[in-house]
Each structure stands twice: as C-alpha cells, then as structure tokens.
Amino acid sequence: EHKIILYENPNFTGKKMEIIDDDVPSFHAHGYQEKVSSVRVQSGTWVGYQYPGYRGLQYLLEKGDYKDSSDFGAPHPQVQSVRR
C-alpha cells in the first residue's frame, strides 16, 4: 500500500489531502488548491512535482515526516501532482 498525506501549513496543520494507492496528476482537479507545506508519508515511496501533469521540480518523498517543504527540498511550498 502507498499512503501520503499533504498539509497546507507546516507541522501538519491546516487543510489536508490524503492519497491512498493512487497517482494524482492535478491536485486542483481533486479539489485541493492549497499550498503543500508539510507531508507525512505513511507507506511507500512517492515523487511530488511542482506543477500539474508531473512537471517542474521533482521531490522524492520516502516514508517519514516532512514538517516543512524545505525538508523535502522544495524552495516554495508548491506541489501540484504526485505519483507512486
């Protein structure tokens, strides 16, 4: 199983989107239009992308907690697509 939770604010606060065993080419299409400032990967390895359609900067997200976007190497809290 692959499970990831994306949070609007640092330290796992604010609006969140939970994804289980699915690739998401556009967070906006899924109704999530917030920034991504923290991430909790509960299982599996994911790649987050700066822009929709798996474009832009890529961020490797392995199991663990990323309490701020800088923890996974993002210069800005901008992640708009993700895949396993």
Score class of each variant (00 low, 15 high):
His30Cys: 10
Gly53Glu: 10
Lys67Trp: 08
Val41Asn: 00
Tyr66Thr: 04
Leu60Arg: 07
Tyr32Thr: 09
Glu18Pro: 06
Ser26His: 11
Tyr54Thr: 00
Lys67Pro: 10
Asp71Phe: 11
Arg84Asp: 02
Val41Ser: 03
Asp68Ile: 14
Asp22Phe: 07
Glu18Gly: 03
Asp22Leu: 07
Gln33Val: 14
Gln33Glu: 12
Ala74Phe: 05
Thr45Cys: 10
His2Ala: 05
Phe27Arg: 01
Gly44Gln: 03
Gln78Arg: 09
Val24Asp: 04
Arg55Pro: 03
Arg40Asp: 04
Val36Met: 04
His76Phe: 08
Asp22Pro: 01
Tyr32Asn: 12
Leu60Gln: 07
Ser43Cys: 07
Ile4Ala: 01
Asp65Ile: 03
Gly44Ile: 04
Ile20Met: 14
Gly53Leu: 15
His28Asn: 15
Ser26Gln: 06
Ser37Met: 14
Val47Lys: 03
Gly53Ala: 06
Val47Pro: 03
Phe12His: 14
Pro10Cys: 05
Tyr59Ala: 09
Tyr59Ile: 09
Lys67Val: 11
Trp46Ala: 01
Tyr32Val: 13
Gln58Lys: 07
Ser37Lys: 08
Trp46Ser: 05
Ser43Thr: 09
Gln58Phe: 15
Val79Met: 04
Val79His: 01
Arg55Leu: 06
Asp21Ile: 04
Arg40Gln: 13
Arg84Lys: 04
Asp71Asn: 14
Pro52Leu: 02
Val39Asp: 02
Gly44Arg: 00
Val41Gln: 03
Ile19His: 01
Lys15Cys: 04
Val24His: 02
Val39Met: 11
Ser43Val: 10
Gln78Pro: 09
Pro77His: 06
Leu57Pro: 12
Val36Cys: 14
Val82Ile: 15
Tyr66Ile: 01
Gln42Tyr: 13
Lys16Ala: 10
Asn9Ser: 09
Tyr32Phe: 12
Lys35Leu: 07
Met17Leu: 11
Asp65His: 09
Ile5His: 00
Lys67Ser: 15
Arg55Asp: 06
Pro25Asn: 12
Glu8Cys: 07
Pro25Lys: 09
Met17Ser: 10
Tyr32Glu: 12
Ile20His: 10
Lys67Thr: 04
Leu57Val: 11
Arg55Glu: 05
Ile4Val: 00
Glu62Asp: 06
Leu57Asp: 12
Asp22Val: 05
Asp21Met: 01
Glu8Val: 03
Asp22Thr: 11
Asp65Ser: 08
Tyr54Trp: 00
Gly31Gln: 11
Val47Gln: 05
Leu6Lys: 02
Pro10Arg: 08
Gly53Ser: 03
Tyr66Gln: 02
Pro10Asn: 12
Met17Phe: 08
Leu57Lys: 14
Gln58Tyr: 08
Leu61Thr: 09
Gly31Ala: 07
Glu8Pro: 05
Gly73Ser: 02
Gln42Met: 15
Ser38Val: 06
Val41Trp: 02
Lys16Tyr: 15
His2Ile: 04
Gln33Gly: 15
Gln58Val: 01
Glu34Met: 15
Val41Tyr: 00
Arg55Met: 12
Pro77Tyr: 09
Leu60Met: 10
Val39Trp: 14
Thr45Ile: 10
Pro77Gln: 06
Gln58Ala: 11
Glu34Asp: 08
Val79Phe: 14
Glu18Trp: 08
Glu18Arg: 07
Val47Glu: 07
Val41Ile: 01
His28Val: 13
Ile5Thr: 11
Phe27Lys: 09
Gly44Tyr: 05
Ala74Gly: 13
Lys63Trp: 15
Ser37Asp: 10
Tyr66Leu: 06
Asn9Val: 00
Glu34Lys: 08
Tyr7Glu: 03
Phe12Tyr: 09
Glu8Asp: 07
Gly31Ser: 06
His30Leu: 14
Asp65Phe: 02
Ala29Ile: 01
Lys3Met: 04
Phe12Gly: 05
Glu18Leu: 07
Gln33Phe: 13
Tyr49Ser: 07
Phe27Pro: 06
Pro77Lys: 10
Leu6Gln: 02
Met17Arg: 11
Asp22Trp: 04
Glu62Phe: 01
Ile20Leu: 14
Ser69Pro: 12
Tyr54His: 00
Lys16Gly: 11
Tyr32Trp: 10
Trp46Gly: 05
Leu61Met: 13
Asp71Gln: 14
Glu34Thr: 12
His76Pro: 10
Arg55Val: 04
Tyr32Ala: 07
Arg40Glu: 06
Ser43His: 06
Pro52His: 04
Ile19Met: 02
Lys35Ile: 09
Ser38Asn: 00
Val39Cys: 09
Asp23Leu: 00
Phe12Trp: 08
Gly53Arg: 15
Asp22Glu: 15
Ile5Pro: 03
His2Ser: 13
Leu6Cys: 12
Arg40Pro: 01
Asp21Tyr: 03
Lys16Glu: 07
Gln50Lys: 00
Lys67Met: 14
Asn9Lys: 11
Val47Met: 07
Ala29Ser: 09
Gln78Thr: 15
Pro52Gly: 02
Ser43Lys: 07
Val41Asp: 03
Ser37Ile: 02
Tyr59Gly: 03
Lys35Pro: 07
His28Trp: 06
Val79Cys: 03
Arg40Ser: 11
Asp65Val: 07
Phe12Ile: 06
